[in-house]
Each structure stands twice: as C-alpha cells, then as structure tokens.
Deep mutational scan, measured.
Amino acid sequence: MQRVNMIMAESPGLITICLLGYLLSAECTVFLDHENANKILNRPKRYNSGKLEEFVQGNLERECMEEKCSFEEAREVFENTERTTEFWKQYVDGDQCESNPCLNGGSCKDDINSYECWCPFGFEGKNCELDVTCNIKNGRCEQFCKNSADNKVVCSCTEGYRLAENQKSCEPAVPFPCGRVSVSQTSKLTRAETVFPDVDYVNSTEAETILDNITQSTQSFNDFTRVVGGEDAKPGQFPWQVVLNGKVDAFCGGSIVNEKWIVTAAHCVETGVKITVVAGEHNIEETEHTEQKRNVIRIIPHHNYNAAINKYNHDIALLELDEPLVLNSYVTPICIADKEYTNIFLKFGSGYVSGWGRVFHKGRSALVLQYLRVPLVDRATCLRSTKFTIYNNMFCAGFHEGGRDSCQGDSGGPHVTEVEGTSFLTGIISWGEECAMKGKYGIYTKVSRYVNWIKEKTKLT
C-alpha cells in the first residue's frame, strides 16, 4: 500500500490518463441519441435557420407576430419608411378606419389613436360632414345658397324668414311668412316636400332668348283662358290664391305678392273693366268669414305684352289694390325667389296649380277651390304637342294621358313649387288646347323671366 501511494504521488498524470480511459469505455446513459432527441424537440425550422439574422431580410411573422416588435424591426421587413409607417399605425392600436367614419364618399386613412378623412370636392370637416359648395344638395341650405369668396357655403332665406341657429334652416321672422300653410287642420295635408338634388348652379339658368321682337298675326285659340281631375282644397291650404270678379264672377285667378299687390295673367284683364279681388276665398257660393274683398285701382301688364300681336306672350300683369290686405292664416303671400332659384325650383319637376275653373272641358265651374299636382314636361315634348308657338318664356306641365289639367277660369292662378315646406311661385296658368285632352298640356308663363320686374313694381313704400 505504501508503494502504491508513492507511485500516485510521483505520477499524477498517469492516474488522470487511467481515469479518462475508464470513462470513455463506459456506456453513456444520461444523453439520448440524435434521433430520439429530435422526437422530443420537434420544432419547425425557421426561415433563416442556421444563418445569422443580421444578414437576412426581415420576416413579418418572425419579427412582429411571434413577439412584439419595434418600429426598427418592422422597418427591416418593409425596407421602406412609408410602408412601415402605414403598417405601424394599425399594428400599434388597430384600424381606426374600420367603422368607416368618413361621410359623403370620403376616404379614410388610419393613424395612431386617430384617423384622417380625405374629402371629395365640396366637403370638409373631420368626417367630411361639412358642405362647402352650393353645387351639392344646395349646400344643405333649406332655401338659398351662395358661395363666399373663400368658396364656403353661405345660406340665406327669402323675405319674412331668418336663418336658424344651425345656419342652414329657415324659420319665420314674421307672423305670416310667405308660402307657408298655417291653418292647423290643413298642415297635415301639406304636399310632399321637395329635397334639393345635386345641381350645376353655374349652368342652372337656361341660355334662352326671349323672342321679344317676333311679330306674329293673332292666333285663334280655343278655350285658351284655361282644375280638371283635381281635388277639393281645404280652407287655408292655398292662402296665396285669390279669385278675380268682373263682368262675371271667378273669371280668373291670381296670387298675393304682398298686402297691396296681386300677380295674374295679362290676358285676364281689360282696361276700363272694374275688377274686384277676393282673398281668403274657399267656396265661392258661401260666406265663410275668411274672405277679404278689395278693388283694383291700377293694372300693370308687362311692358312687352301686346294682345294685338299675341294674347299669351309675356302673359303676366300686376294688380294694385285700393287697401292693403290683412295677412292671416287664410290670406298669405306666395314666396318669389330670384331668377336663378325660381328656375331651379321649376326644374324640380312638379308643381301645384289651383283655381275655381271648370271641372271638365266646357263644363261647370268649381264651387270649392280645386288643386292638382302636375309634372313638368320637357321642352321637346311640349313643342311636338301643339302647332302653336311655345315661346321661351312659357313652359308645359300636365299629363300625356289627359284627364287632369287646369281649365277655363283658372287662368292667372299660381303654379307653385314647394321647397322644404315653403311654396314659391314658378308659373302662372296661361293657356292650353281644350282641357285635359290626351297628348295636350297646360301652358304656363315662366315666372323666372319676370321676377325682377315683379319685385321692382310691387315694392311697398
């Protein structure tokens, strides 16, 4: 034993070699072989497995989906700052455009905790909710729209109204504003409101030439003092309507412009014939205590009207009353817009006519005020429907199939267009061939041609 100890002390290297040989010859039971080890760690190889990531292109799944990435790591994937920024906006807080917040056709661009709407022409605001041009839906104005110097929408209202708090709607500024039905039992019968379409306001006024200088022999019209197929109006439903009495009662109609003036057809009036105007009328054979009678003290036909040349060209006249009318729910003026808007309103496509005229061709006159909704007829169809001249200051309205029309005794009465609950004068009943005849239409004086003249002559002093 002493000898062994001496050998170990003198030859430590020998001992180490012996131990190493023993270990190498022993069977290893701690580690699995290569094949079995792979069965336990069965993990798919990654895209760049075996390579240094710093030297390969980034992978979106590896960089940002398996674990949260930084902007720089995302930049490695896209290799483009702009594309990385677009991805980053949604990656950080989701897609803010998912709810489609942009209105009126706006395009949404996502941002971090926010979004941006790219608005089409005519709109602005956070969600493109603000109209900035009158060309689109009248700028959301209830009545009139004008573009300011910086191309912003400025709404306005006709006389007797003021802008509401929203700067879009119009509200009454006087007790009985024009064009409004205020009798409670008839307010439910107000005709369907007309909503502004998209309009090209630059070209809204037709490029028409008034044929002022045409000389033409007097034409022989049949029954051209021209509501057939209409309905009984309720008291106060058309408070701007008046009836004219002269040699015979209810020979023509008219509309209240203001307390002192009536507008009617020029062919209705004769110099030297006494005319009485009755406002607030409903049943011409009954006294309903809503009527107001006034005498006409002055007749002003349009300066281009000449019955000797043509009885229905420039067929418009103004009547001055001896005493002002007292405005109330049964006696209310009709609204008159400017030339541009009167023309736009007419193009809405349908209007209402009213009167006490004959209820059928050569038949009896109506006792109760009649009204009828009539569609506008395109000019080409209008011209083809008659052998008589249709001037540019006239328009056609009615039904091709016949059966409904204005008729004798309705002449001078109103053709009105309702705009968001307020009625505007767009025409004056003038003439036609018979009444409600198939293929024939009622012919009306186009008020847009005469609004400046009306307003100039009827100013209240």
Rank of each mutant, 00 (worst) to 15 (best):
E270S: 06
Q167L: 13
Y22A: 13
E67H: 04
E281Q: 11
L52P: 15
C268I: 02
Y441A: 07
C117F: 00
C97D: 01
L383R: 14
N304S: 13
G357F: 10
G442C: 13
Y444P: 01
F224C: 05
N59C: 03
E323T: 14
T461R: 09
L325E: 01
V199F: 12
Y391I: 06
K152H: 08
G50N: 15
L318G: 00
N59L: 04
W88N: 15
W431K: 13
E434H: 14
C335H: 01
K311Q: 05
F251G: 05
Y450W: 00
K152P: 07
S411V: 14
S411A: 11
V248P: 08
A173S: 11
W356M: 09
T85H: 05
A366R: 08
E10V: 14
K168G: 04
R449N: 14
R294W: 01
P414T: 08
V359W: 12
A233G: 08
P239V: 01
C396S: 01
V374F: 02
V77E: 07
G412D: 02
A317W: 00
A307K: 11
F348V: 14
D378H: 10
K274R: 10
G236N: 05
C18N: 03
I336V: 12
E193I: 12
V154E: 07
C102D: 00
T271I: 09
N127V: 05
E116K: 07
L130I: 10
K387I: 04
F144G: 01
A173E: 08
A192F: 08
A250Y: 06
N80E: 09
R75L: 12
N38S: 14
N138Q: 03
P101M: 02
G230L: 12
N59F: 04
W88Y: 15
R226K: 10
T215D: 07
T194R: 11
I316C: 01
P235D: 04
D322Q: 06
T461F: 11
I300L: 10
Q2C: 13
K168F: 13
V416D: 00
D150Q: 09
S350W: 15
I297N: 05
D378F: 03
K339Q: 14
C28H: 03
W453M: 01
E231M: 09
K45D: 14
G363Q: 10
Q185K: 11
W453Q: 00
F196Y: 10
E124H: 06
A207Y: 11
K293I: 06
L211K: 10
K455Q: 10
N258E: 02
G403T: 13
G280Q: 02
I428T: 02
R62Q: 04
K339N: 10
A233L: 07
L19T: 05
D93L: 05
C97P: 01
S107C: 04
W356C: 03
R191S: 14
W118R: 14
E53W: 04
G58T: 15
K39M: 12
E79N: 15
D33T: 09
V92H: 09
E434D: 14
G105H: 06
S148Q: 09
S448Y: 03
I214G: 07
K168I: 10
Q2K: 08
H302S: 03
E98A: 10
Y391G: 08
N295M: 08
E433A: 14
Y341D: 06
D111W: 05
D212K: 09
G21R: 04
C170E: 00
L19D: 02
L19H: 03
W453C: 00
D198N: 12
I136P: 04
E171A: 10
E76F: 15
L60Q: 15
I344P: 02
E286S: 10
V273P: 10
C396M: 02
C28G: 12
P120D: 10
L369W: 07
F395I: 00
N328P: 00
C145Q: 01
N313D: 07
S148H: 08
N151V: 10
T218R: 10
R75F: 07
Y352S: 10
Y450E: 01
E286Y: 09
K311A: 09
D200T: 06
V374C: 03
K274F: 05
T225Y: 13
D200C: 04
G105A: 04
G355P: 05
A173G: 07
A9Q: 12
F121S: 15
T190P: 08
D95P: 04
N393S: 14
D338S: 10
C119Y: 00
Y330M: 09
G402A: 14
Y47F: 13
F224T: 12
A250F: 08
I390T: 09
C396F: 02
V353N: 02
T458Q: 03
R62E: 03
S365C: 04
H415C: 02
N343S: 11
K109L: 07
V263E: 01
C102F: 00
N343Q: 09
T445E: 03
F221K: 12
A279Q: 00
A192H: 09
N258S: 06
P375D: 13
N310Q: 08
L372M: 13
Q185C: 06
N80L: 05
E320C: 02
A266F: 02
E142M: 09
L163F: 00
I210S: 14
C145V: 00
T276R: 10
P301I: 09
D405K: 14
S107Y: 06
C97K: 01
G421V: 03
E79Y: 11
V451M: 03
L23Y: 07
D33Q: 07
V77F: 05
S184G: 07
S406P: 15
N452P: 12
R191E: 13
G106R: 01
V278Q: 04
I299D: 03
P44M: 14
V153C: 03
Y371E: 06
G357P: 08
C69W: 02
T342D: 03
I334W: 01
D249W: 04
G58N: 14
S220V: 12
N59E: 04
L318C: 03
C252S: 00
K168L: 10
R83P: 15
N313L: 09
A307D: 06
H415E: 00
A26D: 02
C407L: 08
P44S: 10
E61T: 15
L372G: 14
D223V: 08
R83Y: 09
T332P: 01
E281W: 11
N452I: 04
G403K: 14
D150E: 10
G160Q: 03
I275K: 01
I336R: 01
P239I: 01
S365W: 07
F71C: 04
G280M: 02
V228Y: 08
V228T: 12
D315L: 00
C335V: 00
R162W: 05
N343L: 04
K137Y: 06
E53D: 07
H289I: 10
T389N: 15
L24S: 04
S148D: 09
K260H: 06
F424V: 00
K188G: 11
N5M: 11
I262R: 01
R191C: 05
G403W: 14
L130Y: 10
T133Q: 09
Q408Y: 09
I17C: 07
N343W: 03
D338R: 04
M8Y: 13
Y391K: 14
V296H: 00
G105I: 00
Q57P: 15
T209N: 13
F399L: 11
H415Y: 10
G280H: 01
E35A: 12
K311E: 05
D33E: 08
E288T: 07
S411N: 13
G280N: 02
C97M: 01
E53K: 10
P333I: 00
K146L: 11
C69T: 03
G363T: 14
G432E: 10
N100H: 09
Y91E: 15
I262P: 01
A192G: 13
Y91W: 04
N328Y: 00
L32S: 15
N104V: 01
F123E: 01
C18G: 05
V183M: 10
I256R: 00
G236A: 07
E124T: 07
Q219R: 08
T29Y: 12
I284L: 14
T445L: 12
H34W: 07
N166W: 02
E171F: 09
N5C: 11
L244A: 01
E288V: 06
S204E: 11
G421M: 05
C141F: 00
W118H: 15
L20Q: 02
V4H: 11
F71W: 10
G351C: 03
D111S: 10
E323N: 12
F121L: 13
V56I: 13
H282P: 06
D378Y: 03
H34L: 07
V263H: 00
R373A: 11
K446E: 05
C252W: 01
R449E: 13
T458M: 04
L23A: 05
E418Q: 15
S430A: 09
C119F: 01
V326Q: 14
H415S: 01
E76R: 15
S350G: 09
N203H: 10
K234S: 12
Y371H: 13
Y444F: 15
S184K: 10
C155L: 00
N222I: 08
K440T: 14
K152C: 04
S114L: 07
